[in-house]
Amino acid sequence: MVTNPYKILDIPETASDEEVKTAYRKLAKKYHPDKYVDSPLKDVADEKMKEINEAYDMIMDMRKNKNSQNQSSYGSSTGYGGASDPIFQRVRQLIMANSLDEADRMLDSMADSQKIAEWYFLKGMIASKKGWGEQAFQYIQRAVQMNPGNPEYTAAYQNIMRARQYGAGGAYNQPNQQYGCSCCDMCAGMMCADMCCNCCGGGC
């Protein structure tokens, strides 16, 4: 499937092993499945992830020598798992097949006593896939409150919280506060220092 693995990682064939790894890590971060758990683009991202994994493995295989450490690549996550109730399993299948309205109807028809944490989680996933972020946040938050130990709910919740806190580009892209100002502060600092210097030393 992979035609030219170097092209996929966007590096020349002469790249060193270290450069291959760096390029791979950069792309793996970009397409990381965790970023897309609650997104309609989950499959597209998974596909991209698979592509770069294959490219990376292929390059490493080609270059392999005796002492290869077989650096394993990030695995792509495999859908939802661990559903207990058959109704919830059916709902999960519907969500994966993108039949969101039908899945939603099935959940809505359930009795109040059946509305356990998983019910709220699945409601949240449906809202999220539709793009209704606020509703998704409320439901998934509720699911986590009801069952704080579930890794699936926690992962989805943390993903939303990251987005809400940092916005586009994640934590590494917090504009303004850090740069702009610190530069000015530096300038001001230098000016102060310069003035002191002139005062005391008399011209340095």
């Binding site: 997104s39 991202a45 972020g133 809400r164 940092y166 916005g167």
Partner: peptide, 16 residues
Amino acid sequence: QILNQSLAQAYNAFEL
């Protein structure tokens, strides 16, 4: 936070 959430989704999509 609500606005951030939408922006993050839009940018994650664009990145693909």
